[in-house]
Amino acid sequence: MHVLIATDGSRQSLRAARHFKSFADPSKVTEIIVLAVTRPLASVSFVDEISADAKAPKPLLSSSFKAEAESAVAVIAAEFDDWSDTKVRTRVRSGTPSAEINRAAKMSNIELIVLASGSRGLTDTVLIGSTAQRVQATAPCPVLVVRPVPRVKRTKKKP
């Protein structure tokens, strides 16, 4: 089975990858493509929050959204280090995330797309939809959308 895991550099997308790993059978997953999409015309093309040094100050002049995307896909790919028989590739594309995810899925004959749904707040319901919604609307294959954990009400239980 060929699986595509999309990341926007968020911790939520790392959770999505881990969730997939928690139940998937390594012997059946022959190939994983980890994809990040940078958005050239957006204010911030890509934010990497999952690399070890993600919070360290970044020099403005050498700042590269592409490099951030590359380190983010590398982090997700590293999650599958122990799946010895699975081929893991990383990809960075540029464009509108939903369109590029589906395009990559079609081209690489992907059988499952794994991604996270961004926010838990109002923005996704009120505004014009999230990348996850748009991906599932036109995806060529099944889509696993990992929703954020609902906000824990203030109880004394440890999370």
Binding site: K66, V88, V92
Partner: peptide
């Protein structure tokens, strides 16, 4: 795993076998 990955530094093999030239 057998890795066919682009190192963050950007090896010349980045997207080497990707379908098309891609971007702006």
């Amino acid at each position: 795993m057998s890795v066919d990955t682009a190192s963050p530094g950007g090896s010349p093999r980045v997207n080497e076998d990707s379908e098309l030239k891609q971007g702006v």
